[in-house]
Amino acid sequence: MKDSLLHFIHSLFESLRDLLPILLVIAFFQLVILQQPIPNLGELLYGSFLVVLGLTLFVQGLEMGLFPLGESMAYAFARKGSVLWLLAFAFALGFGTTIAEPALIAVAEEASKVAAAHGAIENSLQAMEAYADGLRYTVALSVGIALVIGVLRIVFGWAIQYLIIGGYFGVVVMTAFAPEEIIGIAYDSGGVTTSTITVPLVTALGVGLASSIKGRNPMTDGFGLIAFASLTPMMFVMGYGMVIG
């Protein structure tokens, strides 16, 4: 009991150290450059306390829950020997976690405003909502497909660089044909799709798969699932813009 308490206090300090750079940057710019007092100091301290406590609990839960869960599922699928179920799981995980992602919902809404302003769609609330929903499903589909490709890569041991660089080539070619107003959104959508809970889970799944399949190296083959999940949305969103626009 005493040990775990000590461990907890130690982790609290580590989280505090993680947050410290943000506090320093804010203090420096506010006091030295903008030369203004820090507003609501009480709230800042209270909020920072919550952030530190939250980060500590998150890391604790990561090691206890998300990592073991991702790995045990990877082992179970590998033992079962059914690639098809594994791919179905990968797709469901990618699609399911992306469709509800709050950051994506926000970006899709912004994108519908841009499209309406450029006359790609009708300037009505209904048309904009339909556009935003379509975009969200497109991105979710692309992340599902990304995880399927990523898992196939681990299973068959394909080298990641050819696939990713090939993907970049696709992005560059599509950029030339996509409507200009969608390009910024498409490029950004690659970054916002992977949430804080999906990342540890997917990473543990990949590493678990690579270490349970013979001939795969967890370092070379285990990582890379997130890379696919941030590449395919760019292509799919530009494709969406080309079809709708």
Binding site: I26, I38, N40, G47, F58, L62, E63, G65
Partner: peptide, 27 residues
């Protein structure tokens, strides 16, 4: 243990996001 870990992750993330919302995002 895994379920407890999940609870920690949820609770931790909620505290984290709430703290960001209170302290860091406004400023």
């Amino acid at each position: 243990r895994v379920l407890l870990g999940f609870v920690y992750v949820l609770l931790g993330l909620a505290l984290f996001l709430d703290g960001l919302e209170i302290a860091l995002f406004p400023i």
